[in-house]
Design a binder for these strands. Structure first.
Length: 187
DNA sequence: CCAGACGTTGTT
DNA sequence: GTCTGG
DNA sequence: CCAGACGTTGTT
DNA sequence: GTCTGG
């Protein structure tokens, strides 16, 4: 996964579901790419934050972090207690066979991805794919079910206590190829 | 991911 | 810049 | 201490 | 080189 996702939802409904104190700031477009502002909820509040964690040793920011190795990576270790956040989404895309393919939950309008933030940027945590998505891609974002979101962002819980949440979400997911743009007038 | 565009004025 | 491996 | 890695996905 | 579309 995950060089692109979508946030297409009603801000008021989102605020109610996540108990926000006010309607959240909203990205300008639903489709989100690395470096775009994305909606993040953490223990200290919510807001827009650039997608990607800046590192000094390469020009492009890191956008993903493997769940399996988080605790072993010096880059992510400092974020494991105080930097756990939710990244709000409604779907994400993969490119099996280079065909843009949308993956969205069948039974929900919103997804909460597990994220890690240093206060300046965010990475999305990835895991192995669920059975239903294995044919699409070999990774997927960690999706936290509604009952797990609060625990993930609770910095008073040690990372070891929430690490078991970082597992593939079974779905079900709707997998749909993006329609090709209509040939315009005159082809 | 890769491929393809990346611009404007004035318009059918 | 900071961490890890040797 | 110094040298080299440091991240992920997808791939040369 | 970087952005956009699929």
């Amino acid at each position: 996964m995950c060089s692109r996702f979508e946030l297409n939802a009603d801000p008021g409904a989102l605020a109610r579901r996540f108990g926000l104190t006010a309607p959240p700031p909203w990205p300008q477009a639903s489709e989100r790419r690395p470096t775009d502002a994305i909606l993040v909820i953490g223990a200290d509040g919510f807001g827009l934050m650039p997608w990607g964690l800046a590192v000094e040793w390469q020009p492009a920011p890191l956008i993903n972090a493997r769940a399996e190795t988080l605790a072993a990576k010096a880059t992510f270790r400092p974020l494991l207690s105080g930097g756990r956040v939710l990244v709000l989404a409604s779907a994400w895309w993969e490119w099996p066979g280079r065909v843009k393919t949308r993956i969205a939950p069948v039974d929900a309008d919103l997804l909460a991805f597990a994220g890690l933030s240093d206060g300046r940027g965010v990475v999305i945590v990835t895991c192995a794919p669920s059975a239903g998505l294995a044919a699409v891609h070999d990774r997927m974002p960690v999706i936290l079910p509604p009952e797990s979101g609060a625990a993930w962002i609770d910095g008073s819980k040690p990372f070891e206590a929430v690490a078991p949440l970082l597992r593939p979400h079974a779905g079900p997911f709707a997998i749909t190829a993006a329609p090709r743009r209509q040939p315009d007038l005159f082809g």
